[in-house]
Design a binder for these strands. Structure first.
Lengths: 148, 148
DNA sequence: CCCATGTTGCAACTAATTTGCATCTAGTTT
DNA sequence: AAACTAGATGCAAATTAGTTGCAACATGGG
């Protein structure tokens, strides 16, 4: 997920979604971009603080960007939300160690196929606009230490 | 998801997980069982209150039951957690309307296949113990009203 | 029936997220 | 390039979500 966009393309993302391009917004997106894995909003907020950006701005920005599809919120089942830049294909997900919280990516959840299947099964839905998919497990290190 | 267990089998679930069978615990499980879809912990707590069961008990019980695999926590991307009784196959998921919050179930995310695929892709993971998968979209009613 | 251990309620607390509002600024418009 | 305005920001305060400590209590084993 790293450094695929220039500062200018980050600005374009913001502009195309109909928002004003501001320093806090560029900073938020570039922090997300530099991070290999989804970032906890608290971590993000504490880094933003160094640039005198309030955490309220992080909450508001990420929530707006999520609605516009610029970022994705992921649920790692820990107190606060995690965010990452959305990838174009929208089909990369995570596997998280429930003990040490290590994260790795994996691809190919085949959600188009599953979405079609799901829409056939249910009766009241018209369209699917998003999906969440994460695996939880044990990394090799933790699997070993638990045995002992 | 409804009324598959008798009061006795709910007790057995609790006992087998190594917990004492108590009135609050039976009540929590039977409320979950009676509910067609995952229940928000706040709703649950307010119903428990009528039986003089504190919300702290709901938080503690659900968190313990989740670790033991009696219940499953699901993320509907709304402030608080949702819980449901775990189904044996563990392969039923939800589609949620992002506007009116209607929920329907769907089956067959084929997570065993995907888990194997994911484990092949990553390098640091030994086992997968759980997965989350939800679809978000628009129900037919909301899809129509948004067009207008 | 007794006892030890796990369970509960209550009150207080911490953490997470949201809101109100005055001020400020990006992106026009003139 | 100054003026304008809708939208963005920071700060303080509020609200909502979830946790902890502890004394009283009750389950299930002996």
């Amino acid at each position: 997920m790293s450094k695929k966009h220039s500062q200018e393309t980050l600005a374009t993302l913001i502009r195309n979604a109909g928002y004003k391009v501001t320093a806090p917004r560029l900073l938020i997106l570039s922090l997300l971009e530099q991070s290999k894995y989804p970032v906890c909003i608290k971590d993000l907020a504490s880094r933003l603080l160094k640039a005198n950006v309030d955490q309220v701005t992080a909450y508001r920005t990420l929530s707006a960007f999520e609605k516009s599809g610029i970022v994705t919120q992921v649920d790692f089942k820990r107190g606060s939300s995690y965010y990452e830049l959305r990838d174009e294909q929208g089909d990369h997900h995570h596997i998280v160690c429930t003990t040490c919280h290590k994260v790795e990516d994996f691809k190919g959840c085949e959600y188009e196929k599953l979405a079609a299947k799901a829409l056939r099964q249910v009766k009241a839905f018209a369209t699917i606009t998003a999906h969440s998919f994460e695996f939880f497990g044990l990394c090799k290190g933790c699997a070993v230490s638990i045995k002992n």
